[in-house]
Amino acid sequence: MLSIDILLNAIVTGILLGSVYASLALGLGITFGILHIPNIAHPTLVVAGAFFVYTLTQWGLDPIVAALIGLVPFYLLGVVLYAFYSAVFERKGGANVLQSLTLFFGLSLVIEILLSLGFGSELKSVSVSYIGSSLKLGVLTVPYRLLIPALLAPVTIAAVWFYLSRTNSGTAIRAVAHEERALSIAGLNPASVKRHAFGIATATAVIAGAALIMVGPIEPFAGRYQIGRVFAIVVLAGMGSIPGSLVIAIIIGIAEALVSSYLNPSWSPGVAFAILLLGLALRPQGLFGAAR
């Protein structure tokens, strides 16, 4: 049946889209989910990462290689951002959530404008030989430009999850959010642990950016359409649950794909926020989080 074909294709597309969304939300899962810093500039940093990848591909590099190169400058960018953030707020005895939200809001605008001044406001895309065609499996048609980024996401997520849960410095990151003082008693400097964590979170933005620009063309202001998705994912996954975020991201991806194939693609931007609002109203602690 034709409608079964559409349904199957929508679900597969949704799973792949969701996987890409999960990589967008990964950095926010660290900054907001673990460190409780409401970094609403993260989607804009992802867009900045996409433009970084775009620039390197213009010089003939592969987008995935470009993303790996970008890890270092974006890590450093994150460290600088956190240093600024903590110099402004944390010295005054704990950051006021609303002030930090406003700070990151202003920051994301500044980044967006700088990108649009530097690259112009037209859509930019990358083209590589291996993302041109589509994979055909029976009734399913999966474009490679969606499949490759979607495979990139679980790899990155697994790497970050392994780092956070199996290594000492990853454990320190998870510990610093819980009990800063205990960490300093144990002989670690909480400020430098957080700086490191923020650096890693920002570094994931360049990978997510590569995934995003492979999926489709991108413009400097694309970040604001992702804010709803990434926050919906992090919040509903239960603040800091990295594997949970992959599940939620896929649920959102499927919901969006179903809405856009059965209703109209123009409805899909509202889907993530609708899910977030419902989720917040019904289950504020998140689907995978412990009650707080």
Binding site: P38, I40, F273
Partner: peptide, 19 residues
Amino acid sequence: IQGVYFAIATLGLVVVLET
């Protein structure tokens, strides 16, 4: 819920209404 979630949800209001 906490103020942060409120702030994020308000961002959503714009997108939902615009959609």
